[in-house]
């Protein structure tokens, strides 16, 4: 982390973020900083707010209090154009959420053409390059339903990447996959990290967290309870809560 902190504006910064659903306070003044090229992995029990945090960053949920800045721009300002903010991030969901009525290619070109106003031919070219990149060029005209879970998730990643996002948010992207399909998605994410993509992801795969994370954050009680390099947080946690959580996961 110290490598990145040299005075430059972080890609993403959360300060005192609060979010409640009814009487349940999920985030209770959470702080988090993500620097350029950094991969931050969020771990924590179900309901600890990992997904809510990602949804808040993407403005799919409106925060109750606190500030989120993307490359220095306050995106929690109610006057901000949420669509323009979202266009700067890529999101990959647990259940892929591909559009079933569109072909794989059209899934990928939808945002470039409609949001980023890229000419159709150029968008198609970029989409094909992206499919090449995720290893599925032969599936361009297929429907999402005809693909395996792992293939669908790779298409979803391509759909997010084609817009050249400044930040990728990945929400439990391997949780819905059969164990033998998890590998193909994790390999892709590892390559992305090597290319310098800034990512925030939450996962239950501690082995994967260990491999890709620059920083692991353990969420508990609506705040980042403990954070640090994976070797420290996962292998030698300082906090009792973290230790108990990891013991349960490993058991």
């Amino acid at each position: 982390m110290s490598l990145h902190a040299a005075g430059r504006e972080p890609v993403l910064r959360l300060e005192g973020v609060r979010k409640s659903f009814g009487d349940t306070e999920v985030l209770r003044g959470l702080d988090l900083t993500v620097h350029e090229g950094q991969v931050v992995v969020l771990i924590g029990a179900s309901g600890s707010g990992k997904s809510t945090l990602l949804r808040c960053v993407n403005l799919l949920e409106v925060v109750d209090d606190g500030r989120i800045t993307l490359e220095g721009d306050d995106v929690t300002d109610p006057r901000v154009d949420a669509d323009a903010v979202r266009a700067r991030m890529g999101v990959v969901f647990q259940a892929y959420n591909l559009f079933p009525h569109l072909s794989v290619l059209d899934n990928i070109t939808l945002a470039p053409v409609r949001v980023h106003k890229v000419p159709k031919a150029e968008a198609t070219e970029r989409a094909m390059a992206m499919l090449e990149r995720v290893g599925l060029p032969e599936k361009a005209s297929a429907r999402p339903d005809d693909l395996s879970g792992g293939q669908q998730q790779r298409v979803a990643i391509a759909r997010a990447l084609v817009n050249q996002p400044r930040l990728m948010l990945l929400d439990e992207v391997t949780s819905a996959l059969d164990p033998e399909l998890v590998g193909e998605v994790l390999d892709l994410l590892r390559e992305l990290k090597d290319e310098g993509m800034t990512m925030v992801l939450n996962t239950h795969e501690m082995g994967f967290a260990r491999q890709v994370a620059d920083t692991v954050c353990f969420l508990h009680g609506g705040v980042v309870h403990e954070q640090g390099p994976p070797a420290q947080v996962l292998d030698d946690p300082r906090q009792e809560r973290t230790r108990r959580f990891l013991a349960r996961v490993h058991a």
Partner: peptide, 28 residues
């Protein structure tokens, strides 16, 4: 709703989401 979430997360506006994602599936 996850279809709307996916479309909005790509930066599509409410209208674009209706036009290109929700209505084609709904009408079918």
């Amino acid at each position: 709703p996850s279809q709307r979430a996916a479309a909005r997360s790509l930066g599509l506006s409410y209208g674009q989401t209706m036009r290109h994602v929700v209505l084609p599936q709904a009408v079918r």
